[in-house]
Write a protein that binds this DNA or RNA. Structure first.
Lengths: 157, 157
DNA sequence: TATTGTTATACTCTATAACTATA
DNA sequence: TATAGTTATAGAGTATAACAATA
C-alpha cells in the first residue's frame, strides 16, 4: 500500500506504516485481518464459514433448503452443495418435508451441534485475541459504536 | 443471518435485528457495507479499486511493473491487465526503463492525476457519510483504537 | 541462474438457465 | 402459474505455467 492510500475497498498485501490512513480504510484492513483469522480458525475445526452459517440457522429448528438459501443470502444451487457437504460430514441430514412433497427439510444432527459448539468456541477465542489491544470497556464502547453505525446503515442505505 | 450468528467471516444478505452479535462479526458487517459503498462510489467515477491502488502508488513516482505488483499484492499477470486498463483510459503510460532493458516504467499522466483527485474526493465524501453516526471525537477515538489493533496485529500475527 | 513482462491455462466462486416434481 | 430441488452451464476473478528477452 502506498503512502497516500485512503479508503478504497482495496488492500495491498504489504502495509508499511504511513501518514495518511483514513478510518474507513483502517477498518476494512482490520476487518480483513479479522476475517482471515476467523477463517483460519474455522479451517482447523474442518468447517467453512458458509457451512457454519447453515448450522447456525438450523439450530433454530429444521428448515426448508429454500428458506436456508434465502436467510443466508445465497442462491439455491449453492445451498444444494452446502447441504450435500453437511450431510457428507454427518452434521445435518435431509428428510422429506411433512406437508410439502416438493421440499426437503434439513435437520441438524448431534454431530452437527457438537461441531457448532466447537466452532463457536474457537471463534470466541479468536475474537478475544483479535481485540486484545482494547480494554473490556473500550471494546464495549467499540461495539456500541458499530451498532450505531449499522443502525444508520440500515435506516439510510 | 440467523439469530445466534457470531463472527464467522460469513455474512448473509438479510440482517434482522437479533440478540447476539459479536463485535468481530459486527465489524466485518460494517466493513463489508463500507467496502460496498466505496466501490459503488468509485464506480461512478469510472475507476476500480485496483486501478486506483496503482494510481496511488504511481503518485510517488514512476514504478516498474514488477514493483507495482509487489506493492499492491497482486501477481504480475494481473498487473499487466491493470496497466493495460490504465493506459486505455489514458491515466498512465508505459515507457522503456532507462537502465533495465527488460523492464517498463509506468508513469502517471495528468489525466491520471485528475482521476486520482476525483476518486479521493468521492471516497472522502463516502467515508464522512459512513461515519456520520459518530461524533468527530468518537470517530477520532475509533480511529485510534483501530490503529492500536493494527499495531498489535502486525506485532503478533 | 534469476528477473521482467507477457500469454496461455487452470481453478475457484458465484450467477444463470433449464428441467422435473409438486403446489 | 408459481415454488422446491437439482443439474448443467457460464461468467468473473485469481492463481499457475511456460515462454522470450535481458540482467
Amino acid at each position: 500500500m502506498d503512502e497516500n492510500e485512503v479508503a478504497s475497498g482495496y488492500h495491498g498485501r504489504s502495509t508499511p506504516r504511513m501518514a495518511t490512513r483514513s478510518t474507513g480504510w483502517l477498518m476494512s484492513l482490520v476487518a480483513e485481518a479479522a476475517n482471515r483469522r476467523f477463517q483460519d480458525a474455522l479451517h482447523q475445526t474442518g468447517i467453512t464459514a458458509h457451512q457454519l452459517g447453515v448450522l447456525m440457522a438450523l439450530r433454530a429448528g429444521p428448515h426448508k433448503q429454500a428458506r436456508l438459501a434465502e436467510q443466508l443470502g445465497v442462491v439455491q444451487p449453492v445451498m444444494v452443495t452446502l447441504v450435500n457437504e453437511l450431510e457428507q460430514h454427518g452434521w445435518a441430514h435431509r428428510e422429506p418435508h411433512p406437508t410439502d412433497r416438493r421440499a426437503v427439510e434439513v435437520h441438524l444432527t448431534e454431530a452437527g451441534q457438537a461441531k457448532l459448539s466447537e466452532a463457536e468456541a474457537v471463534l470466541k477465542t479468536t475474537e478475544d485475541h483479535l481485540f486484545r489491544a482494547l480494554t473490556p470497556q473500550e471494546r464495549a464502547t467499540f461495539h456500541q459504536w458499530l451498532e450505531r453505525m449499522t443502525f444508520e446503515l440500515e435506516e439510510t442505505p
